[in-house]
């Protein structure tokens, strides 16, 4: 912790009091101090750089708009959590219920990237968007089979039965589909191999 940060923590009560009275300067000292922590927390929770940025902004804007309601007796850090809570939990619920989120978490757990690469490689939203775009290159049949197998988790046997074709033809279609998608998604190739060829 830098000397400046220590100084802020020691005088935190002062800054909070001044923020409550409407001091923009105190507000700016406080948000500069807490912004990186809050971002990291929301990022680690939702695994989305885009969403983490949006939520951090919204949280501090709400903090300013409601500055008169700040309670001096309770912890300021805890109050920040209260302001951000519903926003980030709603996003977290959306993410955790996504069909391929589990595979995505497994991948991001293992990935060791320098921090400035995270914007490109670690964003679940971007991955999903790219995948959806790449899917447009598949034939309707390939798309159906890919969807049933990888996103709904049906076995090759049960897909063959449902679509009334042979298991061999399901496997062929599936591997063609994966090859097409992999070619389309060069930027995410590492993740792609992990997600869809592991099984």
């Amino acid at each position: 912790m830098s000397a400046q940060d220590k100084n802020i923590l020691q005088n935190e009560t002062d800054y909070i009091k001044r923020l409550k009275e409407g001091s923009h300067e105190a507000y700016s000292v406080l948000y500069q101090f807490y912004l990186p922590q809050l971002y990291a927390f929301i990022y680690n929770m939702t695994r989305s750089a885009y969403f983490a940025e949006e939520t951090v902004q919204e949280t501090f804007v709400r903090l300013w708009k409601n500055h008169t309601e700040i309670c001096l007796e309770t912890s300021f850090k805890s109050y920040l959590f209260t302001v951000a809570r519903n926003l980030m939990l709603n996003e977290f619920r959306r993410q955790i219920n996504h069909p391929v989120f589990s595979e995505y978490v497994e991948y991001s757990n293992q990935l060791q990237l320098s921090e400035n690469e995270t914007e490109t490689y670690m964003n679940f939203n971007d991955f999903c968007a790219e995948l959806n775009k790449a899917k447009q290159k598949l034939s309707p049949r390939q798309l159906d089979i890919f969807h049933l197998h990888k996103e709904k988790g049906y076995s090759v046997q049960s897909i063959a039965k449902q679509l009334n074709i042979t298991e061999k033809s399901v496997r062929n279609q599936l591997s063609t589909a994966i090859n097409i998608l992999r070619k389309e998604m060069t930027c995410f190739s590492a993740l792609f191999v992990f997600l869809f060829l592991y099984s």
Binding site: Y31, Q32, L35, P36, Q37, Y39, A40, F41, Y43, N44, A49, A52, E53, V56, Q57, F60, V61, W64, S75, K77, S78, F81, E115, N116, T118, E119, M122
Partner: peptide, 26 residues
């Protein structure tokens, strides 16, 4: 809340560029 209160050093802090962007928008 307890994770938030006790973990000050979670990895993946924002880059300078992201920080400036957020502050600008706030």
């Amino acid at each position: 809340r307890s994770i938030w209160m006790n973990n000050e050093y979670l990895p993946f802090h924002p880059t300078e560029k992201q920080k400036m962007r957020m502050i600008g928008r706030i």
